[in-house]
Design a binder for these strands. Structure first.
Lengths: 194, 194
DNA sequence: ATTATCTATAGATCTATAGATAATGC
DNA sequence: ATTATCTATAGATCTATAGATAATGC
């Protein structure tokens, strides 16, 4: 049996992931991460000799790849209709740390080297956005005529509307399942009386 | 005639507003702001002797109050129906620097003193959120039954879905007006064929 | 011997302060 | 005299490096 796979390094990435995704690149210091791990700041360089930027890039890419895997898996396992797939996706997303792609692109990526920034931006698209876009493309015949050729538009709107659930969760009193059901009904059926 | 009202200070706030709202509190340094103004970093302390936090708070509060004033004005001047009000609101919002309240709450406010953070969080609600919530409350009889007592939910979803337009604008080829119309139709009518 | 930490510290950057200087208004 | 800038710099914080130390595995 191979030795157990770098659980220490994975643990480090888990902690960094939580901090970086919720507070962003510049707002999180290496000392914050070390403190959360119960070690000293300099010790991080044993696992990531290339420093903060490299740690951030690896953390975010791992996070995004995991997201893509999970989204694809959830959609494959759900009942094969649009609403069921969306429900599974949102129930999972709402339990994750909020990704906030807009924040990353506007606030975090400009602090990185252009190459790394481009790499992450591409992964945001491929792992965060494309799976949802593909889902709406697959079920485009269920959509209104004006949306049939716009899976990116409806996908983007849907994803960003999920962000509001994090805020509602803080103030509201409903269960996750209720919120998810309400959001999906809203997006699919519309707000207006019919 | 009173002397012309501190145009220099207002100019400073305009520049700070642009930087702080797009990149966030920690990612923007005083040097960045000074550079954008063509002055030296230390010179900022003439206008804001209390330093960066105070400058940030004043910038954001001014931004939010302006937002509230404009939202109220746009809704008062629009044709008195839900769709017209929403259209005016979104056409204006999409031309503003993206507010990204979620980023502010998660990433920026924790860096401030608790009092200042609470003050800004309250202003985000009162100036960014409440006007839209009030609009949906006013026209609740146009909404589906399940949404009639949930103006905050539909308001939050609507606001966060606007965020996706900033991304779509970057990649897409449509005019602002087309995007706005498409978004409003989607939220009001829903995605599904009927 | 290897792995994972530590202490100590250099160098860079950031906020903030002190005091000088130039331009403007009475 | 007031207003708005400047230079110079202190003090804090952050990233990163160097070398020591402790624990583990053969």
């Amino acid at each position: 049996m191979s030795k157990q796979p770098n659980s220490s390094r994975e643990n480090l990435l888990d902690t960094a992931e939580h901090l970086f995704t919720s507070r962003g690149y510049t707002a999180v210091t290496l000392k914050d991460i070390a403190k959360a791990l119960g070690i000293k700041q300099a010790s991080l360089y044993y696992h990531f000799p290339l420093g903060k930027e490299d740690l951030y890039v690896e953390t975010i890419l791992r996070h995004l790849e995991h997201r893509r895997t999970m989204l694809k898996k959830l959609m494959a396992e759900a009942k094969p209709d649009l609403e069921s797939c969306l429900r599974q996706v949102v129930i999972w997303l709402i339990k994750q740390p909020p990704l906030n792609g807009a924040r990353m692109i506007l606030s975090d990526l400009p602090q990185l080297s252009p190459e790394k920034a481009a790499q992450i931006e591409s992964a945001i698209y491929h792992c965060g956005f494309a799976p949802i876009e593909d889902l709406f493309a697959k079920y485009r015949h269920d959509l209104q005529d004006s949306l049939q050729e716009e899976p990116g538009f409806i996908g983007g709107t849907f994803l960003s509307s999920i962000e509001s659930l994090y805020a509602v969760k803080r103030y509201g009193f409903k269960s996750d399942e209720e919120l998810v059901a309400q959001l999906i009904t809203l997006v699919l059926q519309g707000a207006l009386k019919r």
